[in-house]
Write a protein that binds this DNA or RNA. Structure first.
Length: 593
RNA sequence: CGGGGAGUGGCGCAGUUUGGUAGCGCGCUUGCUUUGGGAGCAAGAUGCCGCAGGUUCGAAUCCUGUCUCCCCGACCA
């Protein structure tokens, strides 16, 4: 391709809309344009990148025995009503774009395809003899994100590869899950990405095991914790660790203290000369359950620890045997609205009486009491006295009528010891989630009543797995991981072009002739090559070539008359002069080994 | 949804406080010169100043409404 015909529009200034480097570079390099909030056009070079990524994904999915398909983007609401997700996905903070057609039928734009694929499987897969089956598609997904961000990283319309597998039993599901795990590792490696797989929470999708694949980059939205020995890695939402030990209090009798205005752990500890780890803090939250109940929750946590929301929601869900729609701290306003005035915020102890809820207008009238292991393990501790401006020192759980059952509710943090091997510690990194694999189990097949006939002639819901890769996000993550101060450094496997021939001075006949020769020779070898034939000054072309990040550059310059060219590697800026024939051989060797 | 910021030529911005009919840099067009790291000179083109009302002799500027975009948050008492 000739650059003069490429519709290459590069920008010197950074567009104001872009915050992170990869977003800026994709805009400046002429790869993407914003059309609306979270909506982007993939310009020709970007589309080539996406196609190359998709090709790698297809090859690996096919190799793993999956079948490509293409499902509709318009989903009838009935389908989602059958799985019970229509309401949650469309009402309020719902993530699904939805509409009514001219007949008044309700439709949604697919944010994910469990409903469609599962009901199809229910129609097509009648016997255990047809199983297992693994279906995938590469397609645009629509999600009305609360806050679209960072270009392609969190768009409202994005390209995703999603796959769904169907099995007769759990063991078979596990087998395919691990096949997918290996396929994913190969995909990311082939794309030239440094990705780690981490234990993950399966979140709203539900199911048993789940793993995320994270491209490590400082701009990542997720915090991941990795052990020194590499044996353990998890999303912070899911990560476990051994909390640092704290010095036990020297035994003393329980005492009540005046602590005016000391409502924070920090304030309390600096005034009383306590250590945060010797205090039990009690958080007051409200969980909204699937059946509409509003359940007040009291969480006891060692003062130096932080609450992990995801673990909390999962625990509340397990204890109440219900889905949790929302779980958030209770504010003074909430209390006022409920007509409660007897909760001394900032001075709450784990034994806060249920009586304080007696006057609540819509809340459940008793607390769900939870405690993190770090709190229940303390022999003696300080805590709130349930009275304004008072705390208790040297309290024990016996004084409080016993400790709640121990739960893991705390955030694991970098520097803490690992559970699998206390001699190793956790390090933290930031990551961009580019893939996620789940063992869904029978959640959707049961909800949609999609069954096959098993060996014994009985109907049984499928065991399912689902496996996603954010294709457009992956492309931007690659830029986030591979760039320098002059531009993008595409990994060769997904670069829009493999090489670019730059004619330094297009007015110079010798340069022009050699450039054209080299260009057509490369084309004949099948290398996807660009020729910068623009009548721009050399500097402009070099800057653009750096910016758009083509892995190999052949400069046809001053030595063109004697057939000498410069071969430059984008990733390390290494430059070597050599006869043009040799340069082509060299390129063939690295690009077509 | 809450908080903050911004909408002025393709991109980046000034002008708004104090109302007087729109400007700078980059880019674009033409010509000459230059030609290895975003050239120089000259001459040009491009604006419903987000949109709709209002105030005024007069509005990018003041008032009201509205739309859009970006950032932070929806986090621990």
């Amino acid at each position: 391709m000739r650059v003069s015909r490429l519709m290459l529009v590069t920008l010197r200034d950074v567009p104001a809309e872009a915050e992170i480097t990869s977003h800026q570079l994709l805009l400046r390099g002429g790869f993407i344009r914003r059309v609306g909030s979270g909506i982007y056009a993939y310009l020709p070079m970007m589309w080539k990148v996406l196609q190359r990524i998709t090709l790698i994904i297809r090859e690996e999915m096919n190799r793993a025995g999956a079948l490509e398909t293409l499902l509709p983007q318009l989903h009838p609401s009935e389908l989602w009503q059958r799985s019970g997700r229509w309401q949650g996905y469309t009402a309020g903070e719902g993530i699904m774009f939805h509409m009514e057609d001219r007949q008044g039928r309700e439709l949604g734009l697919g944010p994910t395809h469990e409903e469609v694929i599962t009901s199809l499987a229910g129609e097509l897969l009648r016997s255990y003899r047809q199983l297992p089956v693994n279906l995938y598609q590469v397609q645009t997904k629509f999600r009305d994100e609360i806050r679209p961000r960072f270009g392609l990283m969190r768009g409202r319309e994005f390209i995703m590869k999603d796959a769904y597998s169907f099995h007769a039993d759990e063991t078979d599901l596990q087998a395919t899950y691990s096949v997918m795990d290996r396929a994913y590792r190969r995909i990311f490696e082939r794309c030239g990405l440094d990705a780690v797989s981490v234990d993950a929470d399966s979140g709203a999708i539900g199911g048993a095991a789940s793993q995320e694949f994270m491209v490590t980059a400082d701009a990542g939205e997720d915090l991941i914790l990795i052990s020194d020995d590499g044996a353990y890695a998890a999303n912070q939402e899911k990560a476990v660790s051994l909390a640092d030990a704290v010095a036990p209090l020297s035994p003393a009798p329980l005492t009540c203290l005046e602590t005016p205005g000391q409502t924070t752990i920090e304030g309390l500890c600096s005034t009383q000369d306590w250590k945060p780890g010797q205090v039990v803090k009690v958080l007051l939250l409200l969980a909204v359950l699937e059946d509409g109940h509003e359940q007040p929750v009291l969480v006891s946590l060692r003062g130096d620890q932080e609450l992990n929301d995801v673990k909390l929601v999962n625990t509340v869900s397990r204890r109440t045997e219900q889905g949790v729609l929302d779980c958030r701290p209770i504010s003074p306003d909430d209390l006022q609205r409920q007509g409660i005035n007897s909760i001394p915020l900032g001075f709450i102890g784990p034994d806060l009486s249920d009586e304080v809820l007696a006057s609540a207008s819509s809340w459940t009238s008793s607390f769900l009491r939870l405690a993190d292991t770090t709190a229940t393990e303390l022999e003696q501790f300080h805590c709130g006295a349930n009275t304004e401006d008072q705390h208790r020192s040297h309290c024990s759980w016996r004084d409080l009528g016993g400790a709640p059952e121990s739960e893991d509710l705390r955030k694991a943090r970098a520097g803490e010891r690992c559970v699998h091997n206390p001699d190793t510690r956790l390090q933290e990194k930031r990551g961009i989630e580019v893939g996620h694999i789940f063992q869904l189990g029978r959640k959707y097949s049961q909800a949609l009543d999609c069954c096959f006939t098993n060996e014994k002639g009985r109907d049984e819901p499928f065991w399912m797995g689902c496996y996603g890769i954010g294709v457009s996000r992956l492309a931007q993550a690659a830029v986030e991981q591979h760039h320098d101060d002059t531009g993008i450094r595409w990994p060769a496997a997904i670069a829009p072009y493999e090489a670019i021939v730059v004619i330094a001075n297009f007015q110079d006949e010798a340069q022009k002739r050699l450039g054209e020769t080299v260009y057509s020779m490369l084309q004949q070898t099948g290398i996807d090559v660009l020729l910068d034939d623009r009548r721009e000054r050399a500097g402009v072309k070099f800057k653009d070539a750096d910016l758009i990040g083509i892995p190999w550059r052949l400069v046809i310059g001053r030595d063109a008359a004697d057939g000498t060219v410069e071969l430059v590697q984008r990733s390390n800026r290494e430059m070597r002069k050599m006869p043009h024939g040799e340069a082509i051989d060299e390129l063939l060797q690295v690009l077509r080994p």
